[in-house]
């Protein structure tokens, strides 16, 4: 028991160190830089009901890339997105994250990804603020930033003032915005957005376009499927699917 005071001292020092590390503003940038986007498709193929939607698709997405997946309805855009996020096993070929096949690199990959799909991922019985805090918790976001980050994200999607209202009472566009607040909330380099503009008003669309462009400009990467024409943004890559097994990559 003689070492009691010594141990309390050590424990206190460690706690102080940990706090200092957590509050260090440089740390976020460090993490952003530390994670580089390198997502590749190798000979990807998707078969649905004995029909090949696409085959032998080759591409790679890196830092700063803004990639658009285009094609008519039913051409396999969403299937491709699901393969890229690791939700769907490719019928042939593989998706690589930083050179490793997805199932093996799952935790690292999902720690670098924000995904927004057809489903909003928003709990209707919860308030926007409760939804956001859950995203942070399952996204392993920083403790210290969390409260401020939540409010910032709400403000950025124009939902300040609605934070305490259950999502079920909000409009369809506002519900989408709660889901899109993830983009502001989580500090992730790769965004994969499947039809992000559904139900969003004109101003919201412009803001989102701007946000995606800025994210890629800062060194992040984004993959977007949309029928909507981006007015102000140039895509660095395009993956076009024609729905009959053919594709082109630019």
């Amino acid at each position: 028991m003689a070492c009691g005071p010594y141990w309390t001292f050590v424990v206190k020092c460690r706690a102080r160190e940990r706090r200092a590390r957590r509050d260090d503003p440089a740390r976020d940038n460090e993490r952003q830089v530390g994670l580089r986007v390198q997502l590749e498709g190798r000979q990807l193929g998707c078969e649905r009901d004995e029909r090949w939607l696409f085959q032998a698709l080759e591409f790679s997405i890196e830092d700063g890339d803004l990639c658009r997946v285009e094609g008519p309805n039913g051409s396999g855009k969403t299937s491709l997105i699901k393969m890229l996020t690791g939700q769907l096993e490719p019928s042939e070929g593989a998706v690589l994250w930083q050179g490793k096949p997805l199932p093996k690199a799952r935790a690292a990959f999902h720690g670098a990804l924000v995904y927004s799909g057809h489903l909003s991922g928003v709990k209707e019985a919860l308030t926007p603020l409760e939804n956001l805090s859950w995203y942070q918790a399952i996204g392993i976001d920083d403790d210290a930033r969390s409260v401020a980050a939540r409010w910032q994200a709400l403000d950025a999607v124009g939902l300040k003032g609605f934070e305490d209202i259950p999502v079920a009472q909000l409009s369809a566009g506002q519900r989408r915005r709660v889901g899109l607040a993830r983009l502001h909330l989580l500090n992730r380099p790769l965004w994969i957005l499947d039809e992000p503009f559904t139900a969003i008003d004109r101003e919201g669309v412009a803001a989102l376009e701007h946000l995606v462009a800025e994210h890629c400009h800062k060194g992040g990467a984004a993959i977007v499927t949309t029928h909507h024409a981006f007015s102000s943004v140039a895509f660095t890559r395009r993956i076009g699917l024609d729905g009959h097994g053919g594709h082109h990559v630019l």
């Binding site: 690292a108 720690g111 990804l113 799909g117 399952i138």
Partner: peptide
């Protein structure tokens, strides 16, 4: 509602 999707795509 898609929250399951988010859970499966979480680093946890």
């Amino acid at each position: 509602d898609g929250t399951l999707e988010q859970m499966l795509l979480s680093p946890v």
